[in-house]
Amino acid sequence: MRLSRFSRTTLGVITAIILGIVYVPLLVVLVNSFSTSTSLTWPPPGFTLEWWGRAFRSAGALEAVSTSVQVAVISTLISLVLGTLISLALQRFAFFGRDAISLLIILPIALPGIITGIALNNFFRTIMGVPLSIWTVVIAHATFCIVTVFNNVIARLRRLGTNLEEASADLGAGVWTTFRLVTFPQLRSALLAGGLLAFALSFDEIIVTTFTAGSGVTTLPIFILNNMFRPSQAPIVSVIAVVLVLISIIPIYIAQRLSGSEQQRR
């Protein structure tokens, strides 16, 4: 679109300002991780590297990160499978109840987390009689992660059309072969984008997790919440947040590169 130079610059400036504000609280977190104040007060009274040292020696923190990664990986994998299946069904077939199903998929994310949380808690504990564990967290997370995969995959399927799949079938390829060699490669970047978002959702989820985690299952957000109630642990939490932000740039960048190069090829 032929935007005037003025409006392009204005847009750019607005974007820069908003993103700048977005990073102010993160900057506060960064500064706090070096602050001598244990209660995160501003301005920081002094500089110390103590928290960085302690964070990397804190077995609880490292264990919480690893628990969170496990939960997020497993629930992302489950949601990738279920999300792909359901988007293939909804995009490739017209059938009675299709709208109801697409509503069903978005419900776990559209309804407030506390409702999902207490519903699953009640279901697992009093109805099914299964003790809460890491698996109940995985089940809960996978349920609300399906939607992110579903949306990315179905948008891609819609754009792809069915021509290539039909050609593949005409050439004698079976259903599975067609999926493996024709459909799947075209879905790869959509799966990556959906999976990444699902991973992020699961990794930072706290409300549903509170209600579905068994004893001894400490995901990172729960660890952080518990540490807000402990003497002199708050700055360690800041360190963890800073490290996570830094690490997260890598997968996001790779995902961007992959989907970017794919777009250029087309």
Binding site: R54, R57, S58, A59, G60, A61, E63, N226, N227, F229, R230, P231, Q233
Partner: peptide, 13 residues
């Protein structure tokens, strides 16, 4: 227990 009642060194060795 309340936080801080059962500490096994995982938060602070």
């Amino acid at each position: 227990a309340w936080p801080g009642y059962v500490e096994d060194g995982s938060n602070d060795p």
